[in-house]
Amino acid sequence: MSTATMTGRSAARGETRAVPTVLGGLLAGTRAELLRLRKWPAVWVLATVWLLLNLTFAYLFNYIAYSTGSSGFSNEGVPPSALLPDLLPAAIPSVFTSGMPMFGGAIMFILGALAAGSGFGWGTWKTVLTQGPSRLSTFGGTLAAVGLMVVGVVAATLALDLAASTLIAVVEGQSIVWPALGTLAESVGGGLLIFGMWAAAGVLVGVLTRSPALAVGLGLVWSLVIENLLRGVGNLLSGIEYVTDVLPGTAAGSLAGALGAGGSDDPDGAPGVLTVLDGRPAALLVAAYLVVFAVVGALLMRHRDVT
């Protein structure tokens, strides 16, 4: 930089892009997508809605019912005193996933559908696919970034549950008994699988429909209505249950059920929580769905014309 000419040249000619490797492209894509996802108000709205839902249904309503001695929301016939154990830190492993298969899952589906589907309308897929990383690296980066968002939401859920249950224990003068680390880890892992599966489903449907609105609509109808209807029909008509027993929602609900989300007295209590499958097959099925959704989405993105 000793001469004016050189300074002029370096000002005119800036930093040059490198040709990325597969892994380098994946990392670059993950960093890029993380930046734009964490600055997206919609992501924060969805995360906040879930955390509020979780706090309200897992702790707030039950605590109000307990402290007022009434039997209110979804716990008719249960004596108020029986509600307290579920509100304490020791119960977190069983309470943790109770809202995840249906309501939390739907919200994660929306997150995935928005993250992948919006890019078609905005033209951002077209832009990011011409930056350098390959299509697979770019889509992988999106999946990884959505996955990290899911991890963040699950971690925040755990923190919130710990805070709420500890507060209730202190207020009620109960001795604080922490949950066993192993069972807590199982529940957190189950939560990650359930949320990860629904988010991957959202990404896939977002890619399939190329429209966030259509993807979100379809996803909500599927997870909140159609699966429940099919399971209802499955109870009446023999044969259909072979199909309904392995649907994504059934698998996620069974995984939550196996983790104790339904409560000991009423295993099917919380909406979406089921006991159709045992814990291990349910977990494997949820993981398999997650992988299949991600792989099909990647194949579609790789071969599809982006217009």
Partner: peptide, 29 residues
């Protein structure tokens, strides 16, 4: 190509930062 495609909720600068991360160049660029 065929009109600029960017994230509407991000600033112009943040949009370019996203692309800079994809390319592996710094925010100075």
């Amino acid at each position: 190509v065929e009109g600029p495609g960017f994230y509407p909720y991000l600033s112009g600068r943040d949009n370019l930062r996203v692309m800079a991360r994809y390319q592996g160049v710094s925010d100075n660029a």
